[in-house]
């Protein structure tokens, strides 16, 4: 089935079997292997990508469901003409937010989406009120990043990196 995916600003026209997940399209058909296949059924978050700026599990969606959608993968997070790392990516290095690194692309995409949600004032289950101005307390951060699992348990570094990046963008 003919499908056009816009990935990191580049249009890709693909002729795919309807059964190909977005994750397999990225990895096996486009060679974008940054998005990782962990559990392949939506529990680990290693395949998290952004579709229209919203984070989703690429393993739980078919590529043909995304004809015309704007998709951002970890390969597209680096900003600027020189392809420099985003503040969040730099913070992950500064705070050593990984060990084996397998979950990192998903953590980065998810946290990028999460900081966008925060900027738009989306509440979470952990939010005490609805004023749209949420501090990234431990509880907020754990709840908002609950879809991404790190089996090396590098959460202290991951949390510090996300907080650092959030602060650099003017949020607490």
């Amino acid at each position: 089935m003919q499908t056009t995916l816009s990935i990191n600003g580049t249009e890709h026209r693909l002729d795919l079997d309807t059964r190909v997940t977005l994750l397999d399209a990225l990895r096996d058909h486009l060679g974008l292997c940054g998005s990782k296949k962990g559990c392949d059924h939506g529990q680990c978050g290693a395949c998290t990508v952004l579709v229209g700026g919203r984070r989703i599990n690429a393993c739980l969606t078919l590529a043909v469901m995304h004809d015309g959608d704007e998709i951002t993968t970890v390969e597209g997070l680096a900003e600027g003409a020189d392809g420099g790392l985003s503040p969040l990516q730099r913070a992950f290095i500064t705070h050593d937010g990984f060990q084996c690194g397998y979950c990192t692309p998903g953590q980065l995409c998810s946290a990028t989406g999460m900081l966008g949600e925060l900027a738009e004032g989306w509440p979470s289950h952990a939010s005490a009120d609805l004023d749209g101005n949420y501090e990234l307390s431990q509880e907020e951060l754990s709840e908002r990043m609950s879809g991404n699992i790190c089996r090396c348990s590098c959460y202290p570094g991951i949390n510090a990196a996300i907080r650092d990046a959030a602060g650099a963008e003017g949020r607490k």
Partner: peptide, 14 residues
């Protein structure tokens, strides 16, 4: 409250 605790954020977006 119910909807905010279904699955995780990525699942809730789909």
């Amino acid at each position: 409250l119910m909807a905010s605790k279904i699955g995780d954020p990525a699942v809730r977006n789909r």
